[in-house]
Design a protein around this nucleic acid. Structure first.
Lengths: 218, 218
DNA sequence: TTTTTAGGAAAACTGATATTTTCCTAAATA
DNA sequence: TATTTAGGAAAATATCAGTTTTCCTAAAAA
């Protein structure tokens, strides 16, 4: 085995301006911008290279094709769709406030312009790139669903609410909270809701949902 | 004024195989298939002409450009998104059954593969064709919203339910009913729900919603 | 100084596709 | 029959974008 760090000499010719990995990151970032701005078909590889500040020659040395570049970009973005919530904190709250917090977190994530823009790309291209639909399902949908479903189950087990199918319930809750504003954003009809609107909507949804499945003592 | 039906002679040369309007319809239908199958960018005008059974020459004589063809196709499709419900019939039903019926109608319309396919096209291309987003909003969203909102208002005025903002409530109701299954369809993850599933979901939603905003007698 | 490598700029190559045009034939009237 | 028009088939044109290649220069080691 050879210890490259010291023993072997640097190669003869002109050294690389920067490590390939770094250049690749620059290309990925430029590609992200370009794809989000122009969609898959509309994105120009020349513009990607331009944005990244490298020549097309270097770009194609480091990335295989436009299609794979697209997949890398989307997967990287999707893998960051994580619903952050402090579960310890929720335990100390009354049920309705806890659900409100959850919905605020989910709404904030969902209405993020980057999220919407990525969703649009995924929906537009999932025919051509079925792996992207699968990745989206796995990384964006399942994970956030599980987080919310876990909480619902907990409340049910504590007798705070009455639900038979928690998975369906999560889907409904999410639809109620985000579908309409998100669709308006995607169509370019409305700007993202601001924080106050998100809070208001979350409160409404939480109340509606909890009243709808609060245990009845008939 | 000249009476063309009898007086003026037919023109000299070879007569048209069929009226231009008819040919245009054939082209529109072929284009609809092609666009739905391949999206805007992926659609080939040659294939459209082929499907329609006309030459590209004839096609371009009758339609201006690909872009305008696309808009015609989408607008025509959208204008058929009408939420059909028999309002007379609803009046005779208890509130929860009436709402169930409404949601079944809305779900059936929404989960129709043609609807989903059109929505995908609209979402994918609304950047390039803002008029399409506007048409979709006006024809598909507003109209069905108004139908549902009218009913909600009526129930509120009769004291059957307690809602302050009926527009928001309709949005939530719809999201609850359709977002998750529709998204799964768009991603190609699930087939459309069958009628039984739609009914079940509608019943769940109606119950949840009505329990959530039934007047309280505290 | 010579050799060697990295990589930019731009041209070339390739393939696809919207759109136009040419050429030809069929079917009608005069 | 001579003339005129409709329209199909296919070639021509134009453009665009992905990908490759050429040419050239900078910067390092030998």
């Amino acid at each position: 085995m050879v210890d490259n760090t010291k023993v072997s000499k640097r190669p003869r010719g002109r050294p690389q301006i920067r490590p390939d990995d770094e250049t690749r990151q620059m290309i990925l970032q430029a590609a992200r911008q370009e794809f989000h701005a122009s969609g898959y078909a509309g994105a120009s590889m020349n513009r990607v290279a331009e944005r990244a500040g490298v020549s097309t020659k270097t770009m194609y040395r480091l990335i295989p094709t436009k299609a794979e570049l697209f997949q890398s970009v989307i997967s990287a973005r999707i893998s960051r769709f994580i619903l952050e919530m402090d579960e310890e904190h929720l335990d100390g709250l009354p049920v309705d406030e806890a659900l409100e917090h959850i919905l605020i977190a989910y709404g904030t994530l969902t209405f993020d312009p980057d999220t919407v823009s990525s969703l649009r790309l995924v929906l537009a291209e999932c025919d051509r790139f079925p792996e992207i639909a699968a990745a989206f399902d796995e990384l964006a949908l399942r994970r956030t669903t599980q987080t919310m479903e876990g909480w619902l189950r907990q409340q049910r087990d504590r007798g705070m609410i009455e639900i038979d199918d928690t998975a369906t319930a999560v889907g409904m809750l999410r639809g109620m909270m985000v579908m309409e504003p998100q669709r308006a954003m995607m169509l370019g009809l409305k700007p993202p809701p601001d924080h106050a609107e998100i809070v208001k909507r979350a409160r409404n949804c939480a109340r509606l949902f909890l009243d709808g499945c609060r245990p009845k003592q008939r």
